[in-house]
């Protein structure tokens, strides 16, 4: 059997990823560590693309390489960039290393029991996943199997995942948010943090992002709406939408964005997305089916039963998109302004 040399590429990328990961952890400068971590996530996307996991790669590009890095930056902006190597705790580190070595060896002890890398007849690939591949068109008319499984077959997971994002947003809000009027403003230390932008000298950045933002948003809407046919969906689109607003926060300032999107709006829309998803599910119960059984919605949605599922998936993805978008904005603003909602990265 003529095998494509794709696994060799994988190995190469994997070694690179490993190096990047170790570098990120070894860096003394936290800002540099965050950048290397972003590069690490980006290489990870490439690996996943070579393995055919395009949706995962897309999400990782938006979430891991995109907003995660921005979140780390926002935190460092409020604190300072240097990790001081004071107490090496060598004995403890060696002990932890030993634990990890033993754990790793234990994990590898199962290696001979594993199916071969890329074996299409392994239990994982031959038990239930063929069902999804064979029946997605019949059940939902959606060719992107990932979207179908995400929003329909395992829709409950996705509802909870949306809830997780929502929880993260309100958790961070309740941890960090302080009343700007009441707390004394601690200006970030200019020496350890990057210089605050002088609004006059970032003309190019501001104009460039002003031009970019509408295109980003159109692309994000396309990603959500076209998730049935191409990689993408609510999560990826939501993150890109959120990122477009975050870009405005970075290139202008928080106040500029908060004029449009007040705190109240952001936080309410965050919960609204979960509500849309949950309501679609409840509508199914009211129409006489199980929770999230979109099939029974076919009297109120156009088309036959399979199309009812397809349309309901779109509704659900919109809910996911809304929650993810505003959660990302909410999390970013809280982290960047240290909960004061006044100024930030």
């Amino acid at each position: 059997m003529a095998e494509l040399p794709i696994w060799q590429y994988d190995t190469l990328f994997l070694i690179l990823v490993l190096l990047f990961g170790i570098t990120a952890l070894a860096m003394q400068n936290l800002m540099a560590a965050a950048i290397v971590f972003g590069a690490y996530s980006f290489l990870m996307c490439l690996i996943w693309t070579t393995m055919g996991a395009v949706d995962v790669a897309f999400t990782e590009a938006a979430v891991g390489a995109g907003v995660s890095t921005v979140f780390i930056f926002a935190t460092i902006y409020n604190t300072g960039v240097c990790a001081k190597p004071k107490n090496p705790r060598l004995a403890f580190k060696l002990f932890a290393g030993l634990i990890c070595f033993v754990t790793g060896a234990f994990l590898l002890s199962a290696l001979s029991d594993f199916p071969n890398w890329g074996d299409p007849y392994s239990p994982v690939n031959s038990t239930i996943s063929p069902y999804y591949i064979e029946n997605t068109i019949r059940d939902t008319h959606v060719p992107n199997i990932v979207t179908t499984v995400l929003a329909d077959y395992r829709g409950f997971d996705t509802l909870l995942e949306t809830a997780v994002v929502f929880i993260a947003c309100i958790a961070i809000y309740s941890i960090l948010r302080v009343d700007a009027a009441k707390s004394k403003v601690v200006e970030p230390d200019i020496v350890t943090s990057p210089p605050a932008y002088d609004p006059t000298d970032s003309l190019i950045i501001r104009q460039a992002s002003r031009i970019m933002v509408p295109f980003m948003q159109i692309f994000a809407l396309y990603v959500i709406a076209h998730g049935h046919y191409s990689p993408g969906g609510g999560f990826q689109g939501g993150v890109i939408l959120g990122a477009s607003i975050i870009l405005l926060c970075i290139s202008f300032d928080l106040k500029y964005v908060l004029r449009q999107w007040t705190e109240k709006k952001i936080m309410i829309l965050t919960s609204l997305g979960v509500l849309i998803f949950a309501t679609v599910g409840l509508a199914c119960v009211i129409m006489g089916g199980e929770y999230l059984n979109y099939e029974v919605l076919d009297p109120i949605l156009p088309g036959d039963k399979a199309y009812a599922r397809s349309h309901a998936i779109l509704l659900v993805e919109i809910g996911v998109g809304i929650t993810v978008m505003f959660s990302m904005i909410g999390i970013y603003i809280n982290l960047a302004s240290n909960g004061r909602f006044d100024r930030g990265l």
Binding site: I128, Y153, R154, F156, E290, L292, Y294
Partner: peptide, 20 residues
């Protein structure tokens, strides 16, 4: 049992474990 999304019944999918 409660089958979320109506999946996971043997009438609907031959495996009975497709959904949650």
């Amino acid at each position: 049992h409660y089958q979320l999304g109506g999946w996971g019944t043997p009438e609907k999918d031959e495996y009975g474990i497709v959904g949650i």
